[in-house]
């Protein structure tokens, strides 16, 4: 059902947790649908230096969270905004079609975290 890459990220998720005093926080999803993704970012000089997640969700939701945090780290905010749902799925070797929509919330949660950062730091962003 899942690719080896998805299972590997699900079994050994990267960057689980929260950042103390995060610069931006994004949350996407709905508990009644079975997926809630929370992303914390640390930003220094316009670059995402740290990114952590907490996710309530299925195997693909957790793997997507893990992957998006890896992809975001070291990117400028503008570069990170370009990360798309399709790119995350591709990096994971593909997701089952029915999981593409509901569990693939990583890009949206990251975008919300960046927007949150920019709202709090209107000049720096």
């Amino acid at each position: 059902m899942y690719t080896d890459k998805v299972m590997e990220h699900f079994m050994n998720p990267r960057n689980v947790g929260e950042i103390e005093n995060p610069d931006g926080v994004g949350e996407e999803g709905n508990p009644s649908c079975g997926d809630v993704m929370q992303i914390h970012i640390k930003v220094e000089g316009g670059i995402i230096t740290d990114c952590k997640f907490k996710t309530f969700g299925c195997g693909s939701a957790i793997a997507v969270s893990s992957m998006v945090t890896e992809m975001a780290k070291g990117k400028t905010l503008d570069e990170a905004l370009q990360i798309s749902r399709d790119q995350i799925a591709d990096e994971l070797g593909g997701l089952p079609p029915r999981k593409m929509h509901c569990s693939n919330l990583g890009a949206d949660a990251l975008r919300k975290a960046i927007e949150d950062y920019r709202q709090k730091h209107p000049v720096a962003g």
Binding site: M7, M11, G34, C58, A61
Partner: peptide
């Protein structure tokens, strides 16, 4: 979430099911 539970249980050799979305 149920599917994540099932996947981790499967890793422990336990086969079960869930009524989650």
């Amino acid at each position: 979430e149920g599917e994540a539970l099932l996947l981790l249980l499967m890793h422990e050799g336990i086969m079960a099911s869930s009524g989650s979305t």
